[in-house]
């Protein structure tokens, strides 16, 4: 039935909404929806010709109206699907994560948007615009080294992280090392 494919696509989009990753692009469904829409257009043209001959045919009028609606609905579904995907791609660009498998055009889009972002961010060199959107807490912390982690270079000098030593450091500089279990917050 007309519209079934579009519904399938919307279900897919809905599923994508709650996913961490971007699922594979539904190339085949999209192409079939476009084909269906073109078919609808042909029906439409035919019906319009019929109308010229007999403008009182209620059944034709109704079919004409429904075809119109189906075509528009198909378009809206395609756009809704791709808009959601492009928003996911935007998010990845903000987080500086390269998406894995992409449609060729989507990959172009991702590159373009990443560039747009870099360009915008470069107007604010003094700000870290990609930083956390959670308000900062405890900018500096005391940490104890749990296992040797070598040297780290920070704005506040070089730290030699040998086991059992303690440091007073900027949290942002060591967040990763804490996650990895090298350091412990005291």
């Amino acid at each position: 039935m007309y519209g079934d494919l579009a519904l399938k696509l919307i279900n897919e989009a809905k599923r994508t909404q709650n996913l961490e990753i971007l699922p594979i692009y539904q190339d085949e469904i999209i192409r079939n929806i476009v084909r269906e829409t073109k078919e609808l257009e042909r029906t439409l043209n035919f019906l319009e010709e019929q109308q010229k001959l007999d403008s009182n045919n209620r059944i034709d009028q109704c079919q004409l109206f429904v075809s119109h609606l189906c075509m528009r609905r198909n378009k809206r579904c395609l756009l809704a699907y791709e808009r959601l995907r492009s928003e996911k791609l935007d998010q990845l660009a903000w987080e500086n994560i390269e998406p894995e498998i992409l449609n060729h055009y989507e990959s172009d889009y991702f590159k373009n948007y990443s560039e747009t972002l870099i360009n915008y961010k470069s107007s604010f060199p003094e700000l870290d615009l990609s930083g956390s959107l959670e308000p900062p807490k405890d900018v500096f912390i005391d940490v104890r080294v749990l296992k040797d982690a070598g040297e780290i270079q920070t704005e506040y000098g070089v730290f030699n992280l040998t086991k059992d030593s303690q440091f007073f450091v900027r949290k942002a500089d060591v967040e990763r090392l804490i996650q990895q279990g090298y350091l412990q917050k005291i």
Partner: peptide, 30 residues
């Protein structure tokens, strides 16, 4: 100024994406 540039660039790449993926092959009126 920066926001205008951002908006125009982003919009341009979005339109490009929609066009290349399906809009270009859709019936003209759509």
């Amino acid at each position: 100024e920066e926001e205008t540039i951002y908006m125009e660039n982003h919009f341009k790449s979005l339109v490009q994406l929609y066009n290349n993926l399906f809009l270009n092959t859709m019936p003209e009126q759509l």
